[in-house]
């Protein structure tokens, strides 16, 4: 049976990892800080995937970002998806060569579909995650690009079909309203999206505790639950959440071996 996934999303900006709340960023610490406070390697053993997003709002320094990605690769034995600021095939190539298994695209999906198709042609659908940032406005969901600053004149249904036709491999659905709040996922939004897309669906934005993760994982068409909440998931809370979810019969992968037996 295909398992569902727990994903941690690290938000990166100019050398630091950030806590994001409604897409406003707060500096938390650099990679050393992450290693020191999160014992990142051991926490990563409780994850299924890592997403690293470059959210720098100034000129995005993709070379420096790529270096951070390659440092992270040494620490974890799970897939890493990296994105933020990818505009060209060379940007994508740099991240893949730095050890990213997938890339995450957002603004480019709308701004340069030909480039997206070129990337897909070179690296395959399974390597491209389409990030979709949504916000509720007067009862309907709007889609934003450019770190949540530019609204698209697309309704969500049409946009998801457009993405599927582009050939992306997965949808990373983020709620700007819930982002960083810890109030739980936007299940109304998820309900709309799961009825439209046939692609594997990753939900993000709002998870604050293991019950939120559980509720997300229980949705049939949700393939993965993501959290970017550095504050709520500090210390052992990710490993504990995984144990809790497994104990509650959720469909997550099991690890048979202990790291210490292997080296």
């Amino acid at each position: 049976m295909l398992r569902k996934r727990i994903i941690f999303s690290l938000i990166y900006s100019d050398g630091y990892f950030m806590q994001s709340r409604n897409f406003r960023l707060q500096k938390v610490g650099n990679l050393n800080w992450l290693e020191k406070n999160y014992r990142f390697q051991s926490i990563a053993f409780a994850l299924d995937e890592l997403i690293v997003l470059n959210a720098s709002k100034t000129e995005k320094n993709i070379t420096e970002f790529a270096k951070t990605v390659s440092d992270l690769v040494n620490d974890v034995f799970i897939p890493i998806a990296a994105g933020g600021g990818i505009r060209t095939l060379e940007d994508a190539e740099l991240l893949f060569n730095s050890g990213a298994d997938k890339i995450v695209l957002n603004s480019l999906l709308f701004q340069d579909p030909n480039m997206v198709m070129k990337i897909i042609e070179n690296y395959g659908s399974q390597s491209v995650v389409a990030s979709v940032d949504c916000k509720l406005n007067l009862g309907s969901y709007e889609i934003f690009i450019n770190n949540g600053t530019k609204k698209l004149d697309y309704d969500i249904q049409k946009y998801l079909i457009y993405l599927e036709e582009l050939g992306v491999g997965e949808i990373y659905l983020n709620s700007i309203d819930r982002d960083g709040t810890g109030f739980g996922y936007d299940f109304d939004l998820i309900k709309i999206v799961e009825d439209i897309t046939k692609l594997p669906l990753i939900i993000a934005g709002g998870a604050g505790n293991e019950n939120h993760l559980a509720k997300g994982l229980q949705i049939n068409k949700v393939s993965a639950v993501a959290t970017a909440n550095l504050f709520n998931f500090i210390g052992n809370s990710i490993p504990n959440a995984r144990d809790y979810l497994l104990d509650n019969g959720l469909n997550l992968s099991n690890r048979v071996f202990d790291t210490l037996d292997l080296i």
Binding site: M1, L2, R3, R5, D48, G169, K198, P200, V256
Partner: peptide, 24 residues
């Protein structure tokens, strides 16, 4: 099925094989 097939899935391992030595 959803294509691509992405994520952890279960393999019916046979621990008599060298690849799965020591597995249950």
């Amino acid at each position: 099925v959803k294509v691509p097939h992405v994520g952890f899935n279960q393999v019916k391992v046979n621990n008599k094989l060298k690849l799965y030595n020591g597995f249950n």
